[in-house]
Amino acid sequence: MILIGERINGMFKDIREAILNRDPEPVKRHAVLQTQNGARYLDVNTGPTVAPEDQPAVMEWLVKVTQEASPLPCCIDSTNPDAIEAGLKVHRGKAMINSTTADQWKMDTYLPMAAKYGAAIIGLAMNEKGVPKDANDRLALAMEIVANADAHGIPMEELYIDPLVLPVNVAQDHGPEVLETIRQVKLLASPAPRTVVGLSNVSQRCPNRPLINRTFLVMAMACGLDAAIADVEDAELVDMAATANIILNKEIYCDSWLKTFRQR
């Protein structure tokens, strides 16, 4: 299980203020904490309050500051192609692009970028029409991304299909469809692409969010989920991911399994 730390995002108040004041400390603090807690990538997102024309410069700053504090690669998260490329330019190591959709113009923008910078990329199983209702429609869009990624020479192990998780309190019927998509994405190609979810979305505006997140993570892992953008500062969530990893025989058991998961 590859955990991608979600915390360096301008949606959070402390990061929003850090960006505003160009104060590196909050960014660094979350970079270090998430690294210690078992993240394998750190998601960086300027948030919606930064003006589009400022986003490239802010992304560049965020990536630099994050990588000063942590040896981990970043998951460069933006809807603005210029911001993504600005982040990739200063990134050290193998980045992840977050994300393209199945819209042709987006794939034609981001897939060449992934190839050029040797980055992994997340492909959202949606297009301009929105999020599909069921697993079959999600898989059809995933297949388009797989075919386009393949045409750009992107190895399937570096393509992460995101079936799009919706909040359980407003879109309850999507839960089983997402799980089914995770199962079936593995049949789209050989070797199969990987799968990722934006985990915290499942519990938006619900009480007891951590419980919902943890439960959904383990269920999705049982369906074959490879990665999650998640709140790795929730130690119990990380413990559950580590334990599911052991039970799924993804890693050889030892009594210190909670520790080895965080050290990887």
């Binding site: 050889i252 058991y253 030892c254 210190s256 080895t260």
Partner: peptide, 9 residues
Amino acid sequence: INLAKQLNI
């Protein structure tokens, strides 16, 4: 193998 891994840790 599990004990081997644990001892190495």
